[in-house]
C-alpha cells in the first residue's frame, strides 16, 4: 500500500474544473516530483491533497485512510504538511515563533532537528521572518512544515524566485528529509532539478497526468527533453 494514493481525482475552483481524472501514488520515504508547465494544475493538486480546496469526485487515501473532504486541520493531524506556494510565513513573527507554530498540533517545541537540517536558521531564530532572504524564507517554510513531524511533506514551487545556487542548496536536503521518514511530494516548474532529485515523477499537462515513471527514465526521454528542457531532438 502506498503512503499516498490518489485515484481519478476531479477538482477545481467553483465551476471551473482544473484536475481531470488524476491518479498518483507516493511511496513512504521517497522524493516524488510533480512537474508540468505553468497553469497545469500542480498547485491545485497539492491544495486538494491538503484539504484547502474540496474535491468533486475520486479518492485520496493517506496510509489507507480516505482524506478527501476532510478539514485541513485533520489532514495535518494525520501527518501531511503543506509548504504553500509563496512560502506564506507569518511575516510579523520571528523565525523561532514561525517554527513553533509549525509544531502547533503535535505540541512539538523541539526545533533542534530542523535547525540541524538548515543550520543558517539557527543564527536567524530571533529575526522577524519577513526580513529573511528568499532562500532563508523557503528554508524556514520547509522547516516549519517539518515541525509537525509529518509522514508526507508537500512542497509547492520550491525554486520560485530563488537563485539557482540557493535552489541547489535547499534541494540537496530533500533526500535527507525523505530518509529520515518524511516522504516529499515536490511540485516544480524547474523540471531538470525536480527529476534529478526525485526517484519517481509525474507529469501534469492541462490538468491530466500524461506521463509517469522513474525520474531517471523521464529525464532521459527525448519528448520530455524537447518539451520541457529545451533540448533539440536527436
Amino acid at each position: 500500500m502506498s503512503l499516498l494514493e490518489i485515484r481519478s481525482l476531479n477538482a477545481g475552483y467553483g465551476r471551473v474544473q482544473i484536475l481531470w481524472d488524476v491518479s498518483l501514488a507516493v511511496e513512504a520515504e521517497q522524493v516524488v516530483a510533480l512537474v508540468g508547465a505553468n497553469g497545469a494544475g500542480k498547485t491545485t493538486l497539492l491544495r486538494a491533497i491538503s484539504g484547502m480546496i474540496p474535491s468533486r469526485s475520486g479518492s485520496i487515501t493517506f496510509r489507507g485512510r480516505e482524506i478527501a473532504g476532510a478539514p485541513i486541520e485533520n489532514i495535518v493531524d494525520l501527518g501531511i504538511a503543506h509548504v504553500p506556494e509563496g512560502r506564506r510565513l507569518f511575516s510579523g513573527l520571528t523565525v523561532r515563533e514561525n517554527l513553533l507554530l509549525g509544531g502547533w498540533r503535535s505540541k512539538n517545541g523541539d526545533i533542534s532537528r530542523v535547525v540541524e537540517l538548515f543550520p543558517i536558521l539557527g543564527s536567524r531564530l530571533n529575526q522577524i521572518a519577513s526580513t529573511l532572504s528568499g532562500g532563508e524564507q523557503q528554508m524556514c517554510a520547509i522547516a516549519r512544515g517539518l515541525m509537525s513531524r509529518p509522514d508526507l511533506l508537500l512542497i509547492d514551487e520550491l525554486s520560485l524566485g530563488l537563485a539557482p545556487k540557493t535552489v541547489d542548496e535547499i534541494v540537496a536536503r530533500l533526500p535527507d528529509i525523505s530518509r529520515s521518514g518524511t516522504a516529499v511530494l515536490l511540485v516544480e516548474q524547474d523540471i531538470d532539478t525536480a527529476l534529478t532529485v526525485s526517484t519517481q515523477a509525474f507529469v501534469l499537462e492541462t490538468g491530466r497526468i500524461t506521463r509517469s515513471g522513474p525520474s531517471a527514465q523521464l529525464l532521459a526521454d527525448p519528448t520530455i527533453q524537447q518539451a520541457y528542457l529545451g533540448l533539440a531532438p536527436g
Binding site: E73, R88, R105
Partner: peptide, 19 residues
C-alpha cells in the same frame, strides 16, 4: 502567536493545524 498568525494568514495558520 496562534491568534496573531491566524490574523496574518488564516490559510497558512490552518495548514499548521491551527483551528
Amino acid at each position: 502567536h496562534a491568534i496573531g498568525a491566524t490574523g496574518m494568514d488564516r490559510g497558512a495558520a490552518r495548514l499548521m493545524g491551527i483551528r
